Deep mutational scan, measured.
Amino acid sequence: GTEIELESKNGQREHYTATSEDEARKIIEKAVRRGIKRIELRGASEQLIRDMQEIAKQIGLQYRTDGSL
């Protein structure tokens, strides 16, 4: 699965493990709508990382991946 670590603007951290790319995408989209400061992805697919970079650029988000592409 993909591990997703979120940090909201007030510094609250949340951790999710998505079993599918679809689920990961839903978690990320929800977080973005809620207003999130930072997202870290571990074990994400190349496609998901590309999507994440696109989203991050659009809304000026900090993100990090573990680089295991």
Rank of each mutant, 00 (worst) to 15 (best):
E5Q: 11
T2K: 00
D66R: 01
K9F: 13
Q12H: 10
A18G: 10
L69G: 06
I4A: 01
Q47L: 07
K26T: 10
K26D: 11
Q53I: 15
T65W: 04
R42E: 04
G11S: 03
S8D: 14
A24E: 01
R64W: 15
I36M: 07
L61A: 10
K57Y: 08
I55S: 01
I49R: 07
R25L: 12
A31E: 02
S45E: 02
D51R: 08
D51I: 12
A44D: 03
L69R: 03
Q53T: 09
E3S: 09
G43A: 04
I55R: 03
K26F: 05
D22I: 12
N10Q: 07
D51G: 04
A18C: 13
L41Y: 01
Q53C: 12
T65E: 15
Q47T: 09
Q58D: 11
H15F: 13
I39L: 11
R25A: 06
I36C: 08
E3K: 11
N10M: 07
T17Q: 08
N10G: 09
G67D: 10
I59L: 15
E14D: 08
Q53M: 14
K57W: 07
K37R: 12
A31C: 06
E14F: 06
I39E: 00
R64A: 15
I59H: 15
Q12W: 10
S20C: 07
E23P: 01
G60H: 07
L48T: 05
G1Q: 12
Q47I: 07
A18D: 09
R13V: 13
I49H: 09
H15V: 10
N10V: 06
L61D: 12
I4P: 01
H15M: 11
R13Q: 05
D66H: 05
R64T: 15
L69A: 06
K57F: 07
S45M: 04
N10L: 08
E14G: 03
G1S: 12
L61N: 05
S20W: 03
S68C: 15
I27N: 00
I4K: 00
L6Y: 07
G43D: 05
E46H: 08
A56D: 01
K57P: 03
G60A: 03
T2D: 01
T2Q: 04
E3V: 10
I49D: 06
T65F: 04
E46Q: 10
G60M: 05
I59T: 12
E40G: 07
I4G: 00
T2M: 11
K30E: 14
R64K: 14
D66C: 15
I55M: 10
R34E: 14
G43Q: 05
K37W: 05
A44P: 04
G67I: 11
E54D: 09
I36F: 05
E40L: 14
G11C: 13
E29W: 10
E29K: 04
I59S: 15
R33P: 04
Q53K: 10
G35C: 10
G60C: 15
Q47Y: 03
S68T: 09
R42F: 11
E3F: 11
L48Y: 01
H15D: 03
Y16D: 01
A44R: 01
R33A: 13
G43H: 10
Q62I: 15
L48C: 05
T2N: 01
E40S: 13
Y16T: 02
G11P: 00
S68N: 07
T2L: 09
Y63D: 15
T65G: 11
I27S: 01
L41S: 01
E29F: 08
R34H: 12
E29C: 14
I27A: 01
S8K: 08
T17L: 12
S45C: 06
L41G: 00
K57T: 09
T19W: 11
R13I: 14
K26I: 14
L6Q: 02
Q58G: 07
L61S: 03
E23K: 03
E14V: 06
L48D: 00
R33S: 10
E7D: 04
A24K: 00
K26G: 09
S68L: 06
T19E: 11
R50Q: 12
V32K: 02
D51P: 00
Y63H: 15
I59R: 11
Q53H: 10
G1V: 13
R34W: 03
I49Q: 12
K26Q: 11
L41V: 13
E3C: 13
S45R: 01
R64D: 15
Q62F: 07
E21F: 06
I49T: 06
Y16H: 09
G67M: 04
R13F: 13
K57M: 11
M52I: 15
T2W: 09
I55K: 04
I39D: 00
G43F: 10
D51S: 09
E40N: 10
I36R: 00
R33I: 13
E54P: 02
I4C: 03
E23Y: 04
L61Q: 02
I4R: 01
R38K: 10
A56L: 04
A24N: 00
K37V: 14
I49F: 06
I4S: 01
S20M: 02
T19H: 15
E3P: 02
E14S: 07
E29R: 06
E40Y: 11
S45Y: 03
R25P: 00
I27R: 01
T17F: 14
Q53D: 13
G11Q: 02
L6H: 01
L6S: 01
G1M: 13
A44E: 01
I59M: 15
I59N: 15
L6W: 10
L48E: 00
E54H: 06
R33Y: 06
K37L: 11
E14T: 07
I27G: 00
K57N: 11
S8Y: 14
L48R: 00
E40V: 14
Q12K: 10
A56T: 03
R25Y: 08
Q53W: 12
I36K: 01
K57H: 13
G67R: 02
A44Q: 03
L69P: 07
E29H: 09
I55Q: 02
I49S: 09
L61C: 15
T17P: 05
D51F: 13
E7A: 04
R42Y: 07
S20P: 02
Y16E: 02
K26W: 06
E21Y: 13
Q62N: 05
E40P: 00
T19L: 14
R42V: 11
Q53L: 11
M52W: 02
K9G: 10
K30H: 11
R64V: 15
K26E: 14
G35R: 03
Q53S: 09
A31G: 04
R64M: 15
E7Q: 07
I55T: 02
K30L: 12
L48N: 01
S20Q: 04
L61E: 07
E29L: 10
I28G: 00
I59E: 15
E46L: 06
I4E: 00
I28V: 08
K30S: 13
K57Q: 09
S68R: 04
I28H: 00
S8I: 13
R38S: 11
R13P: 03
E7W: 08
L69W: 15
R64C: 15
I36G: 00
I4H: 00
G35I: 02
V32H: 02
M52N: 00
L48A: 02
D51A: 12
E23F: 05
R34N: 14
R50S: 11
I36A: 08
Q58C: 14
V32M: 15
I55D: 01
T2F: 13
S8H: 14
A18Y: 06
I39Q: 00
S68G: 10
I27K: 01
Q58I: 11
L48H: 01
M52L: 14
R25E: 01
I59K: 08
